[in-house]
Simulated assay, not measured.
Amino acid sequence: MKHSPLPFFAGQHRQERLGARTVFSPLPVMTNVPPVRRADWLTQKHPHYIELGGAGGSLFQTQILYSVWVLGLLIFAGMFWGPPGNGMSNGQGWAGVWTGLYEEVWIGANQWAMEFSWENLLGTILLLGTMPGLALFLTVKILREHQQQLRRVLPFRFHRQRREVMLSRWDKRTKRTEVRIFPWEEMCAMVGEGSAVSVSGVMTMASLFFGINSDERPGQFWSGMNVGTLSKEVGAGEWEMIRRYMEEGPEAIDEPAPVTFDGMIEEFCREQKIPRSAFS
């Protein structure tokens, strides 16, 4: 029995109240949108194939995590130090925290003594350890899940010579990575845009999706990739980059963006025409 294809076709457009969707493929057609020369998730470029996904975009994700960590550290430091008379340490840093572990105890007529308080120590540990510990847990959890995803799913490979696309997915039941090859003409691609309205303003988000129809579950995608874009036009330009490569060749796109900090330094030195040793 031959399953019906997905209900999408190139040129299809759907406009909703707070969003819109435009389909570029199957049967990829020219979008008349200027293509981008490269994208963060373009990881490999060769004369006969390109690879998308994998470690692509990891540098930006690492920068985001680093920025969030630094911001959280600054906020915590401000709460920890605080001005004199305020903050957890009364403006005295660790000395103020240590002083706060002692409390005055009445021992007789007009006689007071400073005694160590285990309750204050427990409260200090909870105050100083909960937020940094939670931030560390979330950061490690995100990095671990990202590393697991990189090991489980291979980059999507677009082979222009064979006009085929290799996709993969992680099978939770068998605990194995499945790999399949599909014709280029069957690749489904679309860009969507949605808006969220609130009393403070309107926020618009867009994304580019491309995937393959599932033979086992008609009407659903066997595997796909969803990447965030600045707008529908940018998403269309990123898809046009893939289509231009498949139809015109490797000269239609630039080399992949670096995925490491050392790669960024090498690219900067190459563009500025300076030796690597000249970079501070």
Rank of each mutant, 00 (worst) to 15 (best):
F24H: 05
T31N: 05
N86K: 08
S89D: 11
G72F: 10
G56Y: 09
A77Y: 14
G82M: 08
G54P: 13
G72C: 06
A55G: 08
V33C: 00
I64N: 04
I64E: 07
R17S: 05
G72V: 00
H48S: 09
N90Y: 12
P47W: 09
Y66A: 13
T62G: 10
G57C: 08
E16G: 15
G53I: 07
P26R: 02
T31P: 01
H48T: 10
P84V: 12
M79N: 12
W81K: 01
A55F: 08
G53E: 07
E16T: 09
Q92S: 13
L73A: 15
G54K: 07
P34A: 11
H13R: 15
G72E: 11
M30K: 01
A95R: 11
L59A: 11
G54I: 03
G72W: 06
P26A: 02
V68E: 14
R17H: 06
W69A: 09
P84I: 08
S25T: 07
V33T: 12
S25W: 02
I64D: 09
H48F: 04
V70D: 01
L59Q: 04
G19H: 09
V33F: 01
T43H: 06
F60C: 00
H48R: 11
L74K: 04
Y66C: 00
V23H: 08
P35M: 02
R21E: 15
G57A: 09
T22G: 00
Q15D: 06
L74Y: 11
V29G: 04
F76A: 05
Q92A: 13
Q44K: 12
L74P: 07
G53D: 10
M79A: 15
A20F: 00
H46Y: 13
D40I: 02
G82F: 10
S25Q: 06
T31C: 02
A55D: 13
V33Y: 03
Q63M: 13
L42K: 07
A55P: 01
G91I: 04
G54S: 05
W94R: 07
P28W: 11
H13D: 12
M79W: 14
L71A: 15
N86T: 11
R38F: 03
M30V: 03
F76C: 02
H13W: 07
Q15E: 11
H46G: 10
P35Y: 03
M88N: 02
T62Q: 10
L59V: 04
P34E: 13
H13G: 03
A39R: 06
G19Q: 09
V36W: 01
Q44M: 14
P47D: 13
H13T: 15
L73T: 14
N90P: 05
Y66E: 09
G78K: 03
L65Y: 04
T43G: 03
A20H: 05
G85D: 08
G78V: 09
F60K: 13
Q63Y: 05
L71P: 00
Q15Y: 01
G85I: 11
K45L: 12
G87N: 09
L42N: 06
W81C: 02
